[in-house]
Design a protein around this nucleic acid. Structure first.
Lengths: 108, 108
DNA sequence: GGCTTGGTTCGATGGCTGTCGTACGATGGG
DNA sequence: CCCATCGTACGACAGCCATCGAACCAAGCC
């Protein structure tokens, strides 16, 4: 399994590059909401398998998730504490975001 | 002067797209550090004038700064409170960032 | 009026990245 | 062993975006 960056090596630049993509924010949101590690497959992404792999890689290289194998499945773990320590409040912003811009409950 | 988005219309997507560029984060940092509105010219950017104009536009359209004319100069104001209300802690993350990755005082 | 300063607009360009399909690899079940 | 499942690796492609230079405009000053 390719290397994970040390907590101290996580850069804001790379984290922002990772989080600027809506698909990758969706992954982070679902991991955050689930509260547990998830296999790649259980996250329903609007892209092909190869593209999904790409997105998971970007998140891992940015230091946002940790990946490990379980059988033929790859598990994904949100690096909550480390990210929170490096960038306080960042995960909360992503988690609170509403992809379809439906944050206005009284819309319509 | 082109329109500024309402505070309620500021989207995380657009804000991240704005902040993912190092030049634009530099602008935000300097506005944050200055604590007052700054003319475009006083921020020393590593790009040409036309590119700088582009970056200021992106920041304005994302809702991060407010722009108004003073004579032939364009003033830039960080929309602190509105951004803070929409995305708590985000400005602090950008402000605390060290572009050259020199945040580790005890490195070596 | 003419010059300088400060910034915008336009068009072109290069590189990056998100996307896909296909082929491949590994694990586990019958 | 054969096959299904889950994910990776590779190569190709399209679209976007940061960048620049040159031309332009507006305000102030002498």
């Amino acid at each position: 399994m390719p290397p994970h960056p040390d907590p101290a090596e996580i850069s804001l630049q790379q984290v922002l590059e990772a989080l600027v993509d809506p698909v990758r924010r969706q992954i982070v949101r679902e991991l955050h909401a689930a509260g547990e590690d998830l296999r790649c497959g259980v996250i329903d992404l609007p892209v092909s398998k190869s593209t999904a792999t790409h997105h998971f890689n970007v998140l891992r290289e940015a230091g946002l998730i940790r990946q490990y194998y379980v059988g033929t499945s790859r598990m994904n773990a949100l690096r909550r504490d480390e990210v929170e320590r490096a960038f306080p409040g960042l995960l909360a912003l992503v988690a609170a975001d509403t992809p379809s811009g439906a944050q206005l409950s009284g819309v319509g």
